[in-house]
């Protein structure tokens, strides 16, 4: 009996001594590189400018745009409802706390999508969820929403629908819709362009059949 106790005490002592020599516990709070690589391959991490515009116009409360450019650039121009977290401050405690809430879809944007993707990469590693990148950033925003390219006449109807939406969104963001000249220019045009915002997506039915 005595020997068993001594043996157990010895093993317990060794286990305790082993703890002293164990390296500092790894931080399990971070994702592994493999896990991030898997999500890199997912297209869902991007939000297109059209999707973002649609959600801004709809006043989606679950959307939080995060501007990762510096504060001067943010002060000069920002998307409606965006908050400014400069990339150099992204690891600050209060900014991390904001992301840790996880109650919204956090969409990073910058001029392009390089800086915002860096922010995405860093925050994903820290296990924050629901992070997205605005595809193409503000440059693409200008090219698609503020200056949408006119589709070719032979384009698919969906492309024209998208173009209509972009024209309507453009009016929404630049405030052109309020100009009296715009109203006069063609009421049907204005109505047509406003319509797609609330348009349900699955409307395309075959009426004939």
């Amino acid at each position: 009996m005595n020997r068993t106790y001594i043996l157990m005490a010895l093993i317990m002592f060794l286990l305790g001594a082993g703890l002293v020599f164990l390296p500092q516990p790894r931080n399990n709070r971070e994702l592994s590189p493999e896990q991030i690589l898997l999500s890199l391959n997912e297209p869902f991490r991007y939000i297109s400018t059209d999707q973002a515009a649609r959600r801004i116009i709809a006043g989606d409360p679950a959307l939080l745009l995060i501007d990762v450019r510096d504060s001067a650039a943010f002060a000069a121009f920002s998307l409606p409802g965006a908050v400014n977290i400069p990339f150099s401050h992204i690891l600050d405690e209060e900014n991390q706390a904001l992301l840790a809430e996880g109650s919204k879809d956090y969409v990073f944007y910058s001029n392009g999508d390089i800086l915002s993707e860096k922010a995405w990469l860093l925050c994903s590693r820290l296990r924050h969820r629901k992070l997205y990148i605005l595809q193409g950033g503000l440059n693409h925003w200008v090219e698609t929403i503020l200056r949408p390219p006119v589709p070719a006449a032979t384009s698919d109807a969906a492309v024209f629908d998208q173009y209509d939406f972009r024209m309507a969104a453009r009016m929404y963001f630049t405030g052109e819709g309020e100009l009296p000249g715009m109203r006069k220019a063609g009421e049907s045009a204005a109505q047509r362009s406003v319509r797609p915002i609330a348009r349900p997506s699955g409307k395309r039915k075959h009426e004939g059949c």
Binding site: L15, G16, A17, L19, V20, F21, L22
Partner: peptide, 8 residues
């Protein structure tokens, strides 16, 4: 780890 060792 060191504290646990002391405790043990």
């Amino acid at each position: 780890g060191l504290f646990a060792f002391f405790f043990v």
